[in-house]
Amino acid sequence: MKAVAFGQYYPANSFVHRLDPRMKLLFLVAFIVAIFVANNFYGLAACAAVLVFVIAFSRVPFLKVLSAVKGIFFLAIFTGAINVLFHTGEKTYWAGPAVYWNWGIFCVSQEGIVFSVFLILRLLLLVLCSSMLTYTTTPVSLTDGIESILTPLKWVKFPVHALALIMSIALRMIPTLMEETARIKNAQTARGANFESGNLFKRIGAFIPVLIPLLLSAFRRADELSDAMEARCYKGEKRTKYKKLRFSWRDLVAFLVMAAMIAGVALLRVYLGEIL
């Protein structure tokens, strides 16, 4: 009954949503490459500009996209702090001493500060672009895309289809299992189970009455599903697709944007050199 907001998919009907998932995966890879090719702030700015365009064309609210950063907030701060403390350098970017503070192996320098800001920005862009993929692509079309991209591996006898099937069943079952968990949790709460107080061990212990029925039902479901598939003569290979993936003019546009981005970032790297 409850519509489970699974993963991060943000339903909308936009240019980005309607792109072929393979194109989006490719775009993501290209974007990550571009972020790492960029070795100065202009390069990162170019990446960020492309990202802003993508977000604008995806009709996913800006704040919603930014909320993806919450998960890595501490990681970003930690990375930044470590780099400020350990990165040494003599370059100066503004008036003042090149090294502010020095104690044993620790040192705070201008270069260190600039470098860690650069790293944090890189990290944020990485997270934002990969969350854009999950915001605009349903898990199902994502697995379709992955399967299609991995097809060449079939030549080396890699079970691509089975892998894709496992992935899509797993994804399909996540909301079901979440619903089941909520149901069992409710039932045990009604019997006075307490999941909210007590120390860590007590809380883990409190989940046993939820986990056991949950595991049992997961196994039961797996059995039922495999029986149902066999009863309908599921054979695996040589199946046609309900939704065929097709490249369209949108994907061509995305491809051109991607090529331009890579070229631009590479040029910025060649002509402007390292961190400015």
């Binding site: 069992i184 039932a187 709460t189 006075g192 939820v210």
Partner: peptide, 19 residues
Amino acid sequence: YALRRSVGMVFQYPEYQLF
């Protein structure tokens, strides 16, 4: 807590919550 003691709740297919 006291409320839940006074209002018992049997869900659908309650046998699936035995553990």
